[in-house]
Amino acid sequence: MSIQHFRVALIPFFAAFCLPVFAHPETLVKVKDAEDQLGARVGYIELDLNSGKILESFRPEERFPMMSTFKVLLCGAVLSRVDAGQEQLGRRIHYSQNDLVEYSPVTEKHLTDGMTVRELCSAAITMSDNTAANLLLTTIGGPKELTAFLHNMGDHVTRLDRWEPELNEAIPNDERDTTMPAAMATTLRKLLTGELLTLASRQQLIDWMEADKVAGPLLRSALPAGWFIADKSGAGERGSRGIIAALGPDGKPSRIVVIYTTGSQATMDERNRQIAEIGASLIKHW
């Protein structure tokens, strides 16, 4: 067993022997301040990774656009098919120029040779490549099948209805392509620590998230040296922004954090800054 596999296998073990965790309302004060600064709703939840206990939450059962955070769930569904012998990570998928959609920095470079399922998941999570996500959605049967996968996990809230990039439209009061912070946090925890996926697939999923290259201005910008984070960000229309993450000190994750916002007129930089400040408060009061 590799060191990384050992780390993920012992996530519940280490967490069980940690000192009790206590909620700190100071972080919620910052979440509410972010709402004021952005002029928009902000949803927040913080779960203990081992027990699933909610440590703090704000608007945990209000719907927010998922945006690209759905790509972690998508690759979880792909990995479940791999575990069941219905898919192979090494299978190569070929596609054409007509398949390319807006923001496809990886797939646009491989029109000639195609990409493997493993490479597509890596591109979808680490670079948020939209064509990679659409190609992977095709392998599982489309958005409705991802929703069905989530329902089978016990998540009857999260739903995907459309493809990239239309799913980022974020129309107010439109339930399409949305989740709730509580539902997303619980589902992410199941994917990373539950028995739904094999140990190898859980490790692969967290490795992809740990290698995320496009979430630097968010929670990662607030992390002290030595902290662990595996995350996936999302951005959408109407001032929408979000991030889902597993993080913790001492090089291992111990909490799940989900943050979503929508309806702001603020710039992307300002949305990023507010999420980073929430992260800084979380870490300060850990």
Rank of each mutant, 00 (worst) to 15 (best):
D33I: 06
A211E: 15
H285E: 06
C75N: 02
A183I: 08
T178Q: 04
T186I: 04
W208G: 02
Y95H: 11
Q37Y: 04
S233D: 00
H285C: 04
E270G: 03
I171A: 15
G236E: 04
R63L: 08
Y95L: 07
F228S: 13
I278S: 00
V42E: 00
T187I: 14
A148D: 09
D250H: 04
G154I: 02
S68C: 01
F70Y: 15
N130V: 01
M66E: 02
I171T: 15
R189T: 07
F228I: 15
A200E: 08
G90H: 10
T193P: 01
V82T: 12
L199W: 10
W163A: 09
L192Q: 07
I275H: 02
D269R: 11
M127V: 10
Y95M: 12
I283D: 02
N152P: 09
P165D: 14
E270L: 03
G43Y: 00
I275M: 13
G39E: 11
T139L: 12
G90P: 05
I140P: 01
M180W: 13
S122E: 05
C121E: 01
T186Q: 13
K232I: 00
K144I: 13
W286Y: 11
L192A: 11
W227P: 01
A133H: 00
L111C: 09
L205V: 07
H156G: 11
E195T: 13
N168R: 07
L47W: 10
P249S: 10
E35H: 03
L247A: 11
I275V: 15
A211C: 14
A40F: 05
D161Y: 05
R59E: 03
S51G: 05
S57G: 06
G251C: 09
L73T: 06
P60Y: 10
L55T: 12
G76F: 07
I283W: 13
T158D: 00
I54L: 12
V157M: 06
K144G: 06
G141P: 09
H285F: 06
V78W: 03
L38N: 05
A245M: 11
T147Q: 07
S201G: 12
I45H: 09
R273N: 04
T179P: 00
A185R: 00
P249A: 08
D48S: 05
L192Y: 14
T139D: 15
F149P: 01
G90K: 08
D33G: 04
M268W: 11
L120D: 01
G39C: 10
R162Q: 15
T262A: 06
D155C: 02
L199T: 06
L111H: 14
D129W: 00
P143W: 03
T187N: 04
D48G: 04
V157G: 13
T178R: 02
T158K: 00
A245Q: 01
M180Y: 14
L197Y: 04
C121W: 00
E46I: 14
L188M: 12
Y95P: 07
G43L: 00
I93Q: 14
I229D: 01
E108I: 15
S57C: 09
R159F: 14
G236L: 02
P224N: 15
D161F: 04
D174S: 09
T198Q: 03
H285Y: 04
N152V: 08
A215M: 15
L191W: 08
D174R: 03
M268C: 13
L79Q: 04
H94W: 06
H285K: 11
F64L: 02
T261M: 12
Y95G: 05
E46Y: 10
D212N: 15
D161S: 06
K190R: 14
R59H: 13
V157E: 08
M184H: 02
N50V: 07
K232L: 01
P181H: 01
R63C: 14
G236I: 02
E169K: 05
E26Q: 15
M115W: 02
A132S: 11
G39I: 09
K232N: 00
I243H: 03
I45T: 09
T126N: 05
R189W: 14
N134V: 09
E145S: 11
S221I: 14
E108V: 13
P165I: 05
Q97R: 11
T138Y: 15
M209H: 00
F228A: 11
R176T: 05
L146R: 00
I244H: 00
K30A: 05
M67C: 04
A200G: 12
C121M: 04
A182T: 13
N272A: 10
A148I: 04
H285G: 10
V257C: 08
S80L: 14
T187F: 15
E195W: 05
R162P: 01
G234W: 00
A280Y: 08
I243A: 15
D36T: 15
T261S: 13
T112Y: 15
S80I: 15
D177H: 00
G141H: 10
E145C: 08
P60K: 10
F64A: 01
L55C: 14
D231F: 05
T187R: 02
L100E: 14
T107R: 01
V31R: 01
G239F: 02
L167V: 09
T193F: 06
P105R: 06
S104I: 02
T198E: 11
T186E: 15
C121H: 01
Q88R: 14
I259T: 06
L191R: 00
T178G: 03
A225T: 06
E108S: 14
L49C: 09
S240R: 02
T116E: 13
L188N: 03
E270S: 04
K53G: 14
L160G: 13
D99E: 05
C75W: 02
A133V: 03
E119M: 15
K109W: 14
D174F: 03
A222V: 13
L120Q: 02
Y260A: 03
A266F: 03
V258G: 07
T261P: 02
E62P: 00
D48T: 03
D48A: 06
L49I: 15
A77H: 04
L150A: 13
G226D: 08
G194S: 12
F64S: 00
Q86A: 07
T158G: 05
K213Q: 04
V42T: 06
V78Q: 04
